[in-house]
Design a protein around this nucleic acid. Structure first.
Lengths: 150, 150
DNA sequence: CTCGTTGCAAACCTTTTGCAAGGAG
DNA sequence: CTCCTTGCAAAAGGTTTGCAACGAG
């Protein structure tokens, strides 16, 4: 259940930049787009290794940076040590609700909040570039105990 | 221009917990409450050293953790490597607007956003514990070039 | 063939921890 | 006196970088 489109975009980005489409990059990008979202780098590494066992984590870091630069992924830094990466889809921008117990991550989007942010920035003489908005709590219904996702 | 009240609260917290009020803790806490807000730990360390030159950074980390546990400070982790600490005042909760050019940090508070967050959490079956909301942009009027605060 | 890429290990940075010496109560 | 605290240095994470060997085009 791989998603073909982003792969093509990545190949296009690479050749446009004079960069190479290597076995490793293919393995990493396929693993990334073929799996769940909000993946920590370590998990992307593990997934990519099932395709190309010799991949080192430095290569994963480097490739994820390329994906971010190409606009196909965004880096997330929640309240934990590691970075997570999320594919950029046609859905566009959204923020996150995070269960501090089981680690579940739910996306949300709210036009009213977005609009007020702009107003707040303007009122303080700022031009807004981006924002991050995370709501931490616990999911009440069927919150499984702490998962490996955390 | 030191603020006396939080110092007393900290002493009370320490004795309540059977902990000790040492020269180092006094220097750190005075430096912290007597200065600007949103201080990175390295800066608190430098300030405390002007009073007690032998203070090591491990002591600053340990003391700031006590301040957070006692409810007198909150730890902030913006999009940078280090943590910053902010005194908890009677003003209560607020979020931040951050200039990515000069590092200026402005606080804001918006009841509408707060209310919508609660609604969003509830709609997704979450009980909200906390949130973080940062708006990144650039301040238009008199934005000094990159400061050491960054 | 060229020159970008990889894997490894070392370097980095911030934060944490172990421990013997120091000091508050 | 007791036991909490300190300073130092080492350990811990997570991320980045230098470099010789590798390999895509």
């Amino acid at each position: 259940m791989t998603t073909p489109a982003p792969m093509e975009q990545f190949r296009a980005y690479l050749s446009r930049e004079g960069l190479r489409y290597t076995r490793q990059r293919r393995a990493i990008v396929e693993a990334f787009f073929g799996s769940g979202e909000h993946l920590p780098l370590a998990e992307i590494h593990a997934l990519a290794r099932t395709r190309e066992p010799s991949i080192g984590f430095a290569t994963v870091y480097r490739t994820m940076k390329l994906l971010v630069r190409s606009g196909l992924a965004v880096e997330q830094r929640f309240d934990e040590g590691q970075s997570r990466y999320e594919p950029v889809t046609e859905r566009g921008h959204h923020d996150h609700l995070i269960c501090v117990r089981c680690g579940r991550i739910v996306e949300f989007e709210d036009g009213v909040i977005e609009a007020r942010q702009e107003a707040i920035a303007a009122r303080h003489g700022f031009r807004m570039f981006s924002h991050r908005h995370e709501i931490y709590g616990e999911c009440l219904e069927g919150c499984p105990e702490p998962s490996s996702e955390r």
